[in-house]
Computed example of a mutant assay.
Amino acid sequence: MEQLTVTLEYPAPFDGVLRDRLSLRAPKVRDMRSAAKQAPQDIEERELILFGLLAEVSPKELEGLHFTDYRRLQEGYFRLVSPSTAANPVAVPTDETARPRAALPALGD
């Protein structure tokens, strides 16, 4: 998957325009590196920077989202970076108690 659109429950302003959806493109290595360089010690800021790059909006504007909408962005991001089970079968834990993932596991662990 190269891109997906996240519908916001609470429309928010981006570049002065009230929007009810954001599109995220799939991240590239350069996006991950750029976010890591801009916020080397702050995983939350790094995630905001990465999502801003992928949605082509300001990280500061993302901070104004309702948390439920931010969680939708996180879920969308995970869909973009998850391997397709049809093309690449991988055992995925189905245990509901599995540790929640950070959006930037490779950078934060």
Rank of each mutant, 00 (worst) to 15 (best):
L104P: 04
R71D: 04
S84Q: 03
L48A: 08
A87F: 04
V6R: 04
V6C: 10
A86V: 15
L80E: 15
R33C: 06
L24K: 00
F78A: 13
D20P: 10
D31C: 01
L4R: 01
R33D: 10
V90R: 11
M1T: 13
E56N: 08
V90I: 09
P93A: 14
L50P: 04
R79G: 10
R33W: 01
V81N: 03
D69P: 08
R30K: 13
Q3C: 06
Y77F: 09
A35Q: 07
D109H: 07
V92I: 11
V6F: 00
S82A: 15
T94I: 10
T97K: 12
E9L: 12
D95Q: 06
V17N: 10
D42L: 04
A55N: 01
P59Y: 02
T94R: 09
P100D: 10
R99M: 15
E45W: 05
S23W: 01
T85C: 07
E45G: 06
G64R: 07
S23Q: 06
A26Y: 02
L54M: 15
G76D: 00
A86L: 08
P100A: 11
H66C: 06
D15H: 04
E63Q: 11
E75W: 00
E9S: 10
L4D: 01
P59M: 02
A55W: 02
L107W: 00
L80G: 12
H66A: 08
A36F: 05
Q38H: 06
L65S: 15
P11M: 01
P105M: 00
L18A: 09
P13Q: 07
R30S: 06
I43N: 15
N88I: 12
D95F: 02
G16A: 07
G64F: 05
E75F: 00
L104S: 10
R19P: 05
A36M: 09
